[in-house]
């Protein structure tokens, strides 16, 4: 099985770098033995999500996005199943809002949009989740807040565990 992990955010904006930090942590652990379940993980760290990532999504059996959020309670982790999110036009959660101009006005888009584009353009919609953590501070800094820095290894563990369990389940 081939999994895609995409951590995104601005690593110069404090806690917004959380997604990138987790992606880098997972990349470090790729040496871990996942081979017993024939799992490969492709890790991508990006400042922003852009439509060209669709090409990576179309070849994945599962996708996990990681981001810091202003919509989630500070320090809390929210796992959202994107397969159950069907392109809300005016969601109160800006991370999932695909219809508003604010999410598609420029070069970047959100996880739901990417999954929907993959489905519409290439008929591929692998299972996908968004790990969104509530950020404390988005001000200019290369460092995460203490609380979010402590969460990085835990979330990396959780994601790897999810991928492993999902793969075992699929295999069975």
């Amino acid at each position: 099985m081939h999994w895609l992990v995409i951590g995104f955010g601005n690593d110069l904006a404090g806690d917004d770098g959380f997604g990138i930090a987790v992606a880098e942590e997972i990349e470090k652990r790729l040496a871990l033995d996942l081979a017993e379940n024939e799992i490969t993980i492709e890790v991508i760290a990006r400042r922003i999500l852009a439509p060209e990532l669709i090409e990576n999504i179309t070849t994945a059996d599962g996708v996990i996005f990681i981001d810091a959020s202003a919509d989630v309670t500070d320090g809390k982790l929210q796992r959202i199943n994107l397969q159950q999110t069907d392109m809300p036009q005016n969601s109160a959660d800006s991370k999932l809002d695909c219809g508003s101009s604010s999410m598609l006005m420029s070069h970047h888009c959100n996880p739901v949009t990417l999954m929907q584009l993959s489905h519409t353009l290439y008929d591929r919609k692998p299972p996908a989740w968004l790990y969104a953590v509530g950020a404390f501070d988005f001000s200019l800094s290369e460092n995460l807040s203490g609380e979010l820095a402590a969460l990085v290894p835990k979330v990396a563990d959780q994601i790897i565990d999810q991928i492993r369990k999902h793969a075992i389940f699929e295999k069975a």
Binding site: E55, N90, L104, C109, L117, T120, L121
Partner: peptide
């Protein structure tokens, strides 16, 4: 609400794929 890249993908997938 529909005037965006997702709307383009629905209306003309080949055009959207070309951009990608």
């Amino acid at each position: 609400v529909k005037r965006n890249i997702v709307g383009v993908a629905r209306e003309n997938p080949e055009l959207a794929r070309s951009g990608v």
